[in-house]
Every structure is written in C-alpha cells, then in structure tokens.
Write a protein that binds this DNA or RNA. Sequence first.
DNA 1: GAAATAAACATACAGGCTGTATGTATGCAA
DNA 2: TTGCATACATACAGCCTGTATGTTTATTTC
Lengths: 192, 192
Amino acid sequence: MQEETTRRSNADRRRETRSALLAAARECFVSKGFAGTGTPELVAAAGMTRGALYHHFADKTDLFRAVLRAEAEAVAAAIRAAAPPGSDIVEALLSGADAYFAAMKAPGRARLLLVEGPAVLGPSEIAVLDDETGGATLREALTALNIAAPVPETARMLSAMFDSAALAIADGADPALYRTALGHLLTALARQ
Amino acid sequence: MQEETTRRSNADRRRETRSALLAAARECFVSKGFAGTGTPELVAAAGMTRGALYHHFADKTDLFRAVLRAEAEAVAAAIRAAAPPGSDIVEALLSGADAYFAAMKAPGRARLLLVEGPAVLGPSEIAVLDDETGGATLREALTALNIAAPVPETARMLSAMFDSAALAIADGADPALYRTALGHLLTALARQ
DNA sequence: GAAATAAACATACAGGCTGTATGTATGCAA
DNA sequence: TTGCATACATACAGCCTGTATGTTTATTTC
C-alpha cells in the first residue's frame, strides 16, 4: 500500500473532476441562477478549487455551456428512446411532445434550457441545441404533413409552443390540459 | 441672473434624472445585456453618478425592472391603438399580432422583454407584464371563438408563438412568412 | 529506471463591480 | 431666516472574476 489517496491515472482524474464540477455547477445554477452563483461557492460544492475549474473550462460561461450541452443531450436521448412505432404523423408529434415534457420535468432543466440559457449564451447558440434536440424532426414531420403554411416558420412557432408548455408543466401545471390543447391545435393544422 | 445652472424644482430634477437614467439604462442593457452592463458605465452614459442611481432605484435590478415596465407599457399602448374595428375574431387576432410585431421591432425591445427579462426578473414576474400587454385580450378572444381546447393553456401557448415570431422578426426574419403561418394556424383552430 | 516533460491542479494577485454609509448642496416650508 | 427634507456626490468595504505563478503527480523518453 503506497498512500491513503488512491493513485489515479490522468484520464481518470480528468474525468472525475470534470463530472464533479459539472454536477455541482448544475446544482448551483438551478438553485441560484447563473448570475447568482459564484465560482468560489461552486467549486466548494464540488470539493475542488477554482484552479481546477479554470484548468478545465475557459471561464464560468464555458462551464455553463457544458452543463447545457449535457442537459440538451439528455433531452434528445429521451425523445429518441420514445421513438413512436405508429405511422400517423400527428400522433407521432404528440408522443414526441409527451417525451419532451417528461424529459423536461427533470428539476431545473426547463429553467436552464429555456430561461437562463438564452440569456447567458444568446438565443442563436441555444437555437443550435434546440435543432439537435428535436427541431429537425419537427420540420420533417411538418413537411410530411403537407401543410399549406410555410414549414420553417410554423416549426419554429410550434417549438416555442412546446417550450412554453414544458415550462408550465415543469412548474406544476397539469400536463393533460396542455396535451389536449396541443392535440386540438395539431389535428386542426393537419386537417387543413 | 443667479447662476449658469438653471434653477429647477425638486419635481423637475427628479423627473429629468429618472428619465435620463432610464434612457441610458435601456441603451446599455440592449447593447451589452444586463450582466454585461456596469453601473459606473451606465451612469456615465446618463451624465449622472451612482449616487443618483441608488437614490432613485433600490438596485440595478430595480432599474432594469423600471425599463421593462416602460417597454411593456409601450407595447400595450401600441396594441390598444391598433384596436380593430371589424368583428371577425380571427382577423382581430391577426391584426393584433401585426401590431405586436410592429411594436416589438423597436431596437432591442424583443431581447429585453423576451430574453433578458425572464432570466433577470424570473418568468413569473414577466408573466404579469405579458398579461397586461395582451394576455387577457387573447384569452377573451379564444373564449369568444368557442374552441374545444382548454382556453388558458391554448392562450399561453399561442402567446409563446407570438413571442417567438416577434423575436425572429426583430432579428430580421420576414414578417409575411410568420403572418401567413399564423393565419393558417388560427383559422384552422377557429374552424374546429 | 532516471531524467525530462507535461498534465492537473493549488495559491496568490490585480482589477472591477455592487451596495451602503456618509457628506454636501439645494429646494421647500414654517 | 431658520429648520428640514430632498437630491444627489463621494468614500468605503466586501466579493467576484480571470490570470499568473507555483507545486505535485503522472507520463514519456533515453
């Protein structure tokens, strides 16, 4: 036995401290917001020092960006996992929305992705994440529906609808109400 | 002749410095964001000192709140001024949307109200402003349409649609595309 | 396997910003 | 004109961010 502290490879150290920082950052950003979280408090929660933070991330914003990426990836994975077997497009959209709402129920996730994110990183950078999360799929579905309305604009607005519903649901609203409201809107749109 | 500086009443001084601070704050918050704007730079742009700022406002956030209130009031006034004479509800909604889009084209206003506001003041405080701006009117219109979908949830999601369209248009997107997309969605919803 | 190098941190420091406390001048009221 | 309140201006304490520098541990090279 060499020492009490376990001997770790550089790759291990790197991975472990990074994930510790990310977890603590997520926790702090959710509970106190990006501006309300100081790096001293953040690294203390992670059991690290500010030196480790600035070794792994360019600055506080870069750490925030990494947290958001992880959240967006988790949402995208959840939606992919709930891939619908049926062929009806409206139904596929609705089940996709369900998966989205469920994924966005993770504590603080809606606030991170939909409120803090656009303000800290700018709407344009968030738009990229949105696109990976489900924006492209949404546009494909609308194209398949052969609607008369312009697809990109309709997709963008529908996406905003999903987001506002997700925020409300994560805030305690009844998902069933938003689901039926969405169902009416989408079937009305498809029938046109 | 007493002095070179004009002699002003307290009420005048108060009003003038307040509006100078509000104008400079709006300018700075738009160009550099809330977090990116420091109070020293802000008061310099207003030709004032930090003492004046903290005499008139509780803190930087309170000044931001005052700026947002003015913006929201301007939008509400623009929408009220464009009150439609016709009786068709869908058409009234669309012309209301047009007025909203036009009002939100004021430089930086969309970013202030839709991006920075929710992050700085919290979504709940912004919801109040939204309601005064047009949320209540929207719910009344939906009720009059006698739609099958639940009204409050539908109104909330439609409001989010308007917001995302306003943000896109303020960012340079073609208003006509969003207008037709909205027209299709609203008429489809009304026909149900 | 020993020296050299690089990675992964830890510590120290320099600026800037926020909010408050205190000081001053001007309008107002009795 | 005397006292008071308002409207500021200045000074200060604390915190936070990003960088620069130091130290330890792993990895590579000879």
